[in-house]
Nucleic acid binder design. Sequence first.
DNA 1: TTCAACAGTTCCATTTATCCGAACTATGGA
DNA 2: TCCATAGTTCGGATAAATGGAACTGTTGAA
Lengths: 112, 112
Amino acid sequence: MRPLAHPGIEDIQLEGILHALSDPVRVAIFTNIAGAECAQTCSAFAEVNDKPIPKSSLSHHFKVLREAGLIRSERQGVEMRNTSRCVEIDGRFPGLLPAIINAHAAQAARAV
Amino acid sequence: MRPLAHPGIEDIQLEGILHALSDPVRVAIFTNIAGAECAQTCSAFAEVNDKPIPKSSLSHHFKVLREAGLIRSERQGVEMRNTSRCVEIDGRFPGLLPAIINAHAAQAARAV
DNA sequence: TTCAACAGTTCCATTTATCCGAACTATGGA
DNA sequence: TCCATAGTTCGGATAAATGGAACTGTTGAA
């Protein structure tokens, strides 16, 4: 299962991004990674919004985010370090990810 | 089958918007409606990107867009007039739809 | 009024995708 | 070597997309 394929920036599709972020768990994971200062492991999201996520589901969610081109995952020892590809994507789709991240924050703030 | 329910602006969810627009046919339909000066009928999209869309599928796509809150559909005689709810949504999720519409245009321009 | 044409919707069967427990792989430490 | 930890893969159950056929609702013509 090795090298963990990531799409090239030119192969990233808008539909893939929107599909990946149309899941409440995935958009929560992604906004967290995008806003974090350092890389995040998968297991850091064993719970999302106080709801436990099974490992196999978590792995699937990370795969979807990775294949959509939203995150980059690199194995570091026993764990995986995930970082966002926001800067790259912003070159191709300017303003898209900030708008989604902002919308997610606005929605989360309202849901208190 | 009457009054054709539309969600209130406060019930519109980010995930619903992203899911609705994660389909290539639906995002094409939506950007067209959003950019049109007058209301568009469903049958105006019997073909999308030179690919014919079956009526039942088209009807389903419009239902998804409607229930996500992206469009408003009103019967006018024998046909349906569809308009975008961009202005309303921009009040709730500022910049979101313009960024998506812009990204879609950029991607379409590249695919020539 | 009856009938035909047209725009959309609903029904339903087939295909496809999602979810998650269980088994598996890979790395690091005792 | 053996065990613990982090993720992945497999496989079966459940849910959603697809599209042809039949249906509803509205208009206009005979």
